[in-house]
Amino acid sequence: MAKKCSHFPWQHLIGFLLSIVLTLVALWAGLYSGFSMTIIIVIIVTLASVQAIIQLFMFMHMTESSNGKHQTHVMIHSAFIAVILVAGTIWVLSYGFH
């Protein structure tokens, strides 16, 4: 729905700061944390997904307008397709289930 436009864009600023923090945490987890490969992959993929969701809500106003529901459905649907494509391809081609 129509969002009240306050004078200061807090939503954008918070989204921006969160994105910076998430990027730096992912960098730390990947290069300096010393965790095992599996844990690192789980952490950085989770952080990337959170950051993508922040962009969708705070920058792209996905739920706005009377079509907000449809817009959200499209994104959930395509995220589903993307996960199946990527995870399925890796499963079949990299782990020898062919």
């Binding site: 307008s65 079509n67 817009q71 499209v74 994104m75 395509s78 397709i81 993307a82 990527v86």
Partner: peptide
């Protein structure tokens, strides 16, 4: 809304 659908297709492309 149509552009959101296009972005959905772009997500499939990049996937």
């Amino acid at each position: 809304l149509g552009f959101w659908v296009f972005l959905g297709a772009e997500i499939a492309l990049f996937a």
